[in-house]
Design a protein around this nucleic acid. Structure first.
Length: 472
DNA sequence: TCTGGGGTCCTAGGACCC
DNA sequence: TCTGGGGTCCTAGGACCC
């Protein structure tokens, strides 16, 4: 590869063109676990998805052992003999560390878009100084203040910043993949044009943000194999053959800004709560308990956002990984009785919906609820929101619109925050009904439809009893 | 035995209207 | 003989992301 950095003095020094940064935590969930368990440093560690289903975060050492992203745990379990440590996902911990990370990163730039739990874009447009140096300082602070490793990619567009981050990570983890001076913090805006193209030519098109498996295959079939090929492809042809999304991606690779930084995200458009079951579920009453809980959780999120839902989709499916089982996958969308955030109405709708979908004789693996038609509770004034929380009919058959319903929901949220999710819940939401049978789930102390989480670490930063105690 | 969860955006196609 | 056309809205499904 040719010399990548423009020779000093080769061009008049001007304001750097690169002005967008992507900050990304390295192996984020594993790194969060290591903050509180330093003994895990240098060891192959993975974090498992809900249900201890598959690997969703891997330390570099685990990657070196051959654990793939998304690989089922039962397929890599044998690697424990070679030192692999697997932990159940602890999202309360990751969410809290994420908040701290975003707060620190946001202090480095006038505009920030929090893109995911471990990533944010920063807009350095108009910020004087060497943006790469700022990136290094930010990276050092995340390491020092939080103990979290990260990489920073810089470029004139979001797509190039993402690519720069990929380069920074690869160069750091796999020496030789890219020039060493691009490791950890990489600014594509400081490369000479031909050097940038050489780097793009060395990058498979699948690494470009927005190019997934399907599109990669289709691009390959047309001879577009590298990021450089995509950059040089005809935008109009890309739009015709694929979509406006890919056209924008190609233009962004050319340095043309098509994607804005979204530092003021609008309200959510949907709320999804779904789970795979620890064991296959065959009974309607189990499904109804589960769906009632999912709807309750969705209602909490809804209220947290200050929103009301207009409709609910309920779905369930058997396991596609068990072709020997009878397969059934179905969904139904039900209107809600007016925009509402009332747990009881949502739970009731979910329970009715699942009853319509349920077919005896199937081993259900997963189910969920989705809330749609979301609107701000304040859109028509607080009074409307209160009304939408009206109590169900009383014994005399009268509907009783009242402020009490709103207070009830608020109290429920407060109690569940304080004493743990599910402490207070509606009657159909599990716990009642038939007794648990003796069996795996019962022994594990969970409902038959409950999750497996056998390797959970403490909620060090969000639960008082789990805090770290330092002995003097 | 054992395969996650939560989002967004775009497009195609149908319903409906004038 | 000859059976419109364009716009909007909604939904389902597919692609992507982390």
């Amino acid at each position: 590869m040719p010399a990548l950095l423009a020779a000093p003095g080769a061009a008049p020094r001007r304001a750097p063109v690169s002005s967008i940064a992507l900050v990304d935590g390295n192996n984020f969930y594993v790194s969060c676990e290591r903050v509180f368990r330093p003994a895990l440093a240098g060891k192959p560690v993975i974090v498992l998805s809900n249900n201890d289903g598959c690997a969703i975060s891997r330390s570099n050492e685990a990657k070196a052992l051959g654990v793939r992203m998304g690989q089922p745990w039962f397929q890599c379990r044998a690697l424990q003999a070679r030192g692999l440590v697997a932990l159940s996902a602890n999202f309360a911990l990751y969410g809290d560390l994420s908040d701290r990370m975003m707060s620190i990163a946001g202090s480095f730039a006038p505009r920030q878009e929090v893109y995911s739990i471990d990533e944010c874009f920063l807009d350095f447009t108009g910020v004087p100084g060497d943006h790469r140096a700022i990136g290094r300082a930010l990276r050092a602070r995340l390491q020092q203040w939080l103990g979290l490793p990260s990489c920073v990619g810089l470029g004139p567009t979001k797509t190039l910043a993402k690519l720069a981050n990929h380069v920074a990570k690869s160069a750091e983890r796999k020496p030789g993949s890219y020039p060493a001076e691009l490791a950890s913090v990489c600014d594509l805006g400081q490369l000479a044009p031909d050097a940038l193209d050489a780097l793009l030519a060395a990058t498979p098109v699948a690494e470009v943000w927005g190019v997934g498996r399907r599109i990669e295959a289709a691009l390959q079939a047309q001879g577009i194999a590298t990021a450089l090929d995509l950059k040089r492809a005809d935008p109009a042809a890309l739009r015709a053959r694929f979509s406006v999304v890919l056209e924008k991606t190609a233009r962004e690779l050319r340095g043309l800004r098509c994607l804005d930084l979204d530092d003021q995200p609008g309200p959510r458009q949907q709320i999804l709560v779904s789970r795979s079951f620890g064991d296959p579920v065959t009974r309607l009453d189990d499904l109804q308990q589960a769906l009632s809980r999912f709807a309750s959780r969705a209602a909490e999120k809804l209220r947290l956002d200050g929103q009301l839902a207009g409709a609910m989709t309920v779905f369930l499916r058997t396991s596609p990984f068990r072709p020997q089982d009878a397969q059934h996958s179905a969904s139904i969308t039900l209107p809600l009785p007016g925009p509402t955030a009332d747990t009881r109405k949502l739970a009731d709708t979910a329970v009715r919906g699942i009853a319509q979908l349920f077919r005896p004789g199937h081993r259900y693996a997963k189910a969920g609820v989705m809330l749609l038609g979301l609107e701000a509770a304040g859109a028509q004034g607080a009074a409307q929101a209160e009304l939408s929380l009206e109590l169900p009919e009383d014994h005399a058959g009268h509907s009783r619109p009242t402020r009490d319903a709103g207070r009830l929901m608020a109290s429920m949220d407060a109690l569940n925050r304080r004493f743990g999710a599910g402490t207070l819940r509606v009657a159909a939401a599990g716990g009642g009904g038939h007794p648990l049978r003796a069996g795996e789930a019962a022994e594990a102390g969970r409902a038959r439809w409950g999750m497996r989480r056998e390797r959970l670490t403490p909620q060090y930063t969000t639960r008082w009893g789990d805090r770290v105690v330092v002995r003097g």
